[in-house]
């Protein structure tokens, strides 16, 4: 049972990097890829229908950490205290940019929240790099900081690449047209830092699993809904994929 729940945790964290990675990447590249307001609106409109369904993978991942590996949850989050605070602040700033940017008309309002969206996206990518360095190596002090700088650059680079690939896949005229295979490749690349971190910590995580009674109850409550969860995610991709007509003509809420 511990292995199954570790698999669920790994799937959710890697899925978060693979899916939310392109949202963060597009946010990071917003000033680069979107030279004017109309272009930025198109870019945000491209990720908009996916963000809510993507960011929730991390919420669920932390939930699994709490439910199936409770003693680890407190230790990991507390050990990463300043990084978790930075992650949450970045996340909220990025989301506020998304939710608020179109609520008032006017170039200054939208430019301000586009700035928040971009800054929050950079904050998320960089914080993840530092957090991975800390978790995967268990290091503290200067070595973790140096490795963190390297990993922050790596995560930012793979997210940005993934974001650009997604934009090319979803939007016509956004760089060289990209097929689904290219997007899958960049998704795997974006997930690789998370997968590496999970591989390095697997034995520690499994050793902290909750007793069988708790894991069984969790399984009993979660497994019946798994097909619905998978189905809902597939439905999002079928509805908002690039082949659907009228993609850009309905104004995006974000």
């Amino acid at each position: 049972m511990e292995i199954v729940w570790f698999g669920a945790l790994a799937l959710l964290l890697a899925g978060y990097f693979a899916l939310e990675g392109f949202d963060i990447g597009v946010g990071m590249l917003l000033p680069v890829l979107g030279r004017d307001q109309a272009a930025r609106d198109r870019l945000v409109g491209a990720i908009a229908p996916f963000v809510l369904a993507n960011e929730v993978w991390l919420v669920a991942g932390v939930g699994v950490l709490f439910g199936a590996f409770p003693t680890l949850e407190g230790d990991v989050l507390f050990a990463l205290y300043p990084l978790v605070v930075a992650l949450l602040v970045s996340w909220i700033v990025r989301d506020a940019g998304l939710w608020f940017r179109r609520r008032v008309d006017g170039p200054r309002w939208r430019a301000f929240w586009d700035g928040a969206l971009c800054a929050g996206s950079w904050g998320l990518a960089l914080t993840w790099g530092f957090a991975l360095a800390r978790v995967a190596t268990g290091l503290d002090g200067l070595p973790a900081l140096l490795l963190g700088v390297v990993l922050a650059a790596v995560v930012a680079a793979v997210f940005a690449f993934h974001g650009r690939t997604f934009a090319a896949w979803r939007l016509a005229g956004e760089g060289r047209p990209r097929g689904g295979r290219a997007l899958l490749g960049s998704a795997l690349l974006a997930a690789s830092p998370a997968l590496a971190g999970l591989a390095l910590t697997a034995s520690t995580v499994v050793g902290h699993a909750a007793p069988a009674g708790t894991l069984n109850m969790l399984g009993l409550m979660v497994v019946p809904f798994a097909p619905l969860m998978v189905g809902a995610q597939i439905w999002v991709w079928r509805t908002f994929g690039p082949r659907r007509p009228a993609g850009s003509r309905v104004p995006s809420f974000f």
Binding site: P49, L52, A68, P70, E73, A210, T214, Q233
Partner: peptide, 30 residues
């Protein structure tokens, strides 16, 4: 955590996961 974590895990993993996904479909599905 072996007791208190379970309901929180079910809330985030099942209920909120589905709520957020269906809300995306509702907001952008008009």
């Amino acid at each position: 955590g072996d007791v208190f974590g379970a309901p929180l895990a079910i809330e985030t993993l099942v209920a909120f996961f589905l709520e957020s996904t269906f809300l995306a479909l509702w907001i952008f599905g008009w």
